[in-house]
Design a protein around this nucleic acid. Structure first.
Lengths: 171, 171
DNA sequence: TATTGTTATACTCTATAACTATA
DNA sequence: TATAGTTATAGAGTATAACAATA
């Protein structure tokens, strides 16, 4: 039942691939808006999760995982450090490296983040019954695996910004 | 300790919403790469499709649909016009407006675009059986409808660029 | 006076590439 | 010599706002 477009053509624009991109962008936007309430961007949330999973890694490694150049990672980490969410410890075995860790405050914000993630999941899949929700997850998991997508932070994070309300620094 | 995943394995991050965003970004990237072979960006493809569906609209309307400011639409349309894919006709009833149309060349490129779209659909859903593929489409359609997403061009187009190989015009 | 298309400008974002300190 | 972190700079991409023509 292709409910839309009766203009002959393949009904609703595109099939699953198009819907995937459309819904994915929408979901990413909703998530960005949601965690903006925690004063976090998706990339910042991604770093917190990476540090929760594997503490003590170097900036270079983390920058690679987040898909950003090391030079951009510096001010990125600076802000989270100033906010007391992460901590740069010196790595004693190689003094060139930092070992990044979550602070206690970072851990508790991460807990908020997990709550936000659960609410987000419900919001996005609101239209589905619990069984359908599971079905969808299973299908998507298979697809992600087949495409070699890693379970971690996804690169779509890079381009999503939470419609910032024009808070310019000075001047 | 991360309350993240309890199944031992670091667990795939997130549920359906996360997978949706991840796969959606991946699909959008694949599509951008594919149509880069036609010398089109996703936004350009979007305009061609809009013009095929409803010819003769004004730049302002089209810019709105594509989610770009009118000022940005001007050079955007310029390029497609120079390439002979679209045409600016004067609207006789209101001489402030242009009426944009596809050229014949634009129509035939659109046909190529549809072929690319079909191949893309297969590539993205490769992991699924035909039945599962249909299942997925149905679930996603319901979700898109519930979220009020229109069947047309989606705004995720805005941020996807096809990793351009540094082909600068002249200079 | 409002609106379309256009141009100009200013600003944000980002990557590239130097620089330092360690190895 | 190579690498981690940092800083500086330049370039692309963008929106904002002024402008001319028409309504």
């Amino acid at each position: 039942m292709s409910i839309n477009r009766e203009d002959g053509r393949p009904g609703r624009q595109g099939g699953a691939a198009f819907l995937l991109a459309q819904l994915g962008a929408h979901a990413a936007k909703l998530f960005a808006e949601r965690i903006a309430g925690l004063d976090l961007t998706p990339a910042q949330a991604g770093l917190l999760r990476l540090l929760a999973r594997t503490p003590g890694r170097s900036q270079r490694e983390l920058a690679d995982d987040l898909g950003m150049p090391p030079s951009r990672f510096v001010p990125f980490a600076d802000e989270l450090e100033e906010r007391g969410l992460i901590e740069r410890r010196k790595n004693p075995s190689d003094r060139r490296l930092y070992a990044l860790h979550l602070t206690e405050q970072g851990e508790s914000l991460l807990a908020e983040l997990h709550k936000a993630g659960a609410a987000h999941e419900q919001q996005v899949c609101q239209a589905l019954s619990p069984e359908e929700h599971q079905q969808l997850s299973a299908l998507l998991r298979r697809m992600a695996e087949q495409h070699g997508l890693s379970p971690g932070v996804h690169p779509g994070y890079r381009s999503i910004r939470p419609d910032r309300p024009h808070v310019r620094s000075e001047q």
